[in-house]
């Protein structure tokens, strides 16, 4: 059974339809990247899956169970965690508190403070520091750690490397690669850097104007195929 299945999802901002009849399935353990230009609907899709944007139509299933009507905190309990665009840390709370609050309100599982610090050792010296005082890369690491603390079956990472220095991005992808190698966390990432996407993801979905226009295995897609789908020059499926 698919871990996540999105069927004919529609999401709107007022009169603007940001996600248009979107369908996809994500298998357990898979790492899927969603690429697309600004305004293609990637963030709205993520927000609809996480429950903070109310879907105007369609169905979202997690491990077969219909979660379309659940509020966001119940979806966390069901096993979805999202690292939102802009990290959205609780800036006046310490790193420790940011992690702990996710632990207290999320699912129980193998991720604990100890295992998260093992996966993201750069957080160890920062535990007592208010999250507002961190650099961009540190903030993203805290945001990922916070999401892991709720023991998600599905981890959504929005704009992973946006606003980070190249060194911070490299460090971050090292952590994510280790997470992927663990094989237990299913990840969907929104990423602008195509080289990163093709190196990291198993499968790529390219969105254009709220629709999936290209989908295929990362190993079988070329940069030019993705680029033409990205700009709406060609559509198709590669398997």
């Amino acid at each position: 059974m698919s871990l996540l299945s999105v069927e004919n999802l529609v999401a709107r901002h007022g009169l603007l339809t940001a996600v248009h009849d979107f369908s996809c399935t994500i298998e357990p353990g898979e790492v899927v990247a969603i690429v697309g230009a600004n305004g293609a609907g990637k963030t709205t899709l993520f927000r609809a899956i996480a429950g903070v944007h109310t879907a105007a139509g369609g169905t979202i299933r997690l491990a077969g169970a219909d979660i379309t009507a659940l509020p966001p905190h119940r979806r966390v309990a069901a096993g979805i965690a999202m690292v939102p665009e802009g990290r959205r840390l609780f800036s006046e709370m310490t790193v420790d508190e940011n992690l702990r609050i996710a632990c207290e309100n999320g699912r129980r599982g193998s991720w604990t403070l100890a295992t998260v610090l093992e996966a993201l050792p750069q957080l160890q010296p920062l535990l007592r520091v208010p999250a507002g005082g961190l650099s961009g890369g540190q903030r993203q690491a805290v945001a990922i750690g916070r999401a892991l603390m709720s023991n998600p079956a599905l981890l959504l990472l929005d704009e992973v490397s946006l606003g980070l220095s190249p060194i911070a991005v490299a460090g971050l992808y090292e952590s994510l690669a280790a997470l992927k190698a663990g094989g237990t966390t299913t990840m969907v990432v929104v990423e602008q850097d195509l080289d990163r996407v093709l190196g990291f993801a198993d499968r790529v979905i390219c969105m254009l104007e709220g629709r999936a226009v290209l989908e295929g295995r990362a190993s079988e897609l070329s940069r030019s195929q993705i680029a033409s789908a990205y700009f709406g020059l060609a559509t198709g499926q590669v398997h």
Partner: peptide
Amino acid sequence: RLGRAIRATSADAEAAELVGVD
């Protein structure tokens, strides 16, 4: 736990929902 949830909600209610706070 309630206090942390209150502070998180007051800072960013949506982000608090995303970490499982009702």
